[in-house]
Nucleic acid binder design. Sequence first.
DNA 1: TAGATTGTTAATCGATTAACAATC
DNA 2: TAGATTGTTAATCGATTAACAATC
Lengths: 208, 208
Amino acid sequence: MDTLPGKTVERLSQYRRRLLNLVEENVEYIFSHELAAILHITAVQVRRDLMLLGFSSVYRKGYPVKKLIEVIGQRLDSESGQNVAIIGMGNLGTALASYLTGLRPKLRIVALFDIDENKKGLKIGGVKCYHVSEMGKVIKSKKISIGVVTVPQTSAKKVASQLIKSGIKGILNFTHIPLEVPSDVYLEEYDMITSLEKVAYFVKKKKK
Amino acid sequence: MDTLPGKTVERLSQYRRRLLNLVEENVEYIFSHELAAILHITAVQVRRDLMLLGFSSVYRKGYPVKKLIEVIGQRLDSESGQNVAIIGMGNLGTALASYLTGLRPKLRIVALFDIDENKKGLKIGGVKCYHVSEMGKVIKSKKISIGVVTVPQTSAKKVASQLIKSGIKGILNFTHIPLEVPSDVYLEEYDMITSLEKVAYFVKKKKK
DNA sequence: TAGATTGTTAATCGATTAACAATC
DNA sequence: TAGATTGTTAATCGATTAACAATC
């Protein structure tokens, strides 16, 4: 199966989330222009993405919602699911832990880590917190392939190298320093201050 | 002055952050390939971005760090600075408030809001928390132009419309529902689960 | 049927990279 | 000088949009 473009992957993730809401509301079919309107994109964009999935609509009814959710899942998710750890139980890590836990059945948050001995054994969103010194052991025993890094800047590099040494295959980095990873590890970085500065820049520009 | 492409704005924000670190280390000049290496991009990319700024290097010494920081500031920042509010003091909002406060002199976090009466008057990172009912009043009196939305999903739309009604010009949305804004308001959305699903997808793909 | 919607190709737009003369 | 580095144009790559025949 071909690898989808990153942008399409992002949108498929968004489509699925909206579609899951629609199922709750007992919507059975949706037209491309309806889904597009929800996400503020064009109907062509939606149709093209679904074309890449090889998914077709039902004539004059639109796309069957449940079926589409299923097909997106087949493409995005790993069949057996993937295990995720969050490292750094400050405010950001805690927010992520409680939000992500149980949200996607195929993306299981199975371990949290913090340097603070007092947080050891704590449960956030039902998931146990371990001391960072146990990282290597827990990552291997729980078959964790993805690490979310929410530690303070100062320890980011150390944590990343520990993750890599433990055999993690993907890192989502929320700290504000760029990380170095070997080519077999997928790295995604997100930086809040950059987003905010971008908003500030375009607000300034709009004023004129 | 021409409007810079969004991607360039993002990178300029990143350059500045790295350059500020370099100043601490008393680095006076930097070559394009050095800055590129720090950010895992190409030297051409860096040079092209700086070309858009109209900024030139010093022959055989590279770009003067302090001067470059200044020029990036002239382009990205608003001269008089911009005021920012964060709405929703859960874990995520608290993380943002404490991280962002005082980080960029021209982006001042001047007010926090929460629906919980008990948080009223609280100070996070030295910034006062108000009750959401005071939003309109405080936004106007403090001349706030940017709102960061970190409330629970259920109240996201309501908060956004209050912000817009109060005259805000930019919204950074961390909730998981797409917002609707009029065309004179700049909207940037960030969704953590989408980032995580993207990492998961490419980890799955790499395995093969 | 008439016409709303679709799936797909081709065209366009935007962003990145290659190429290379200019610098001193 | 020789050669590292730069600034900029042109070429390439990738993603979005326009166009439109096909569907029933």
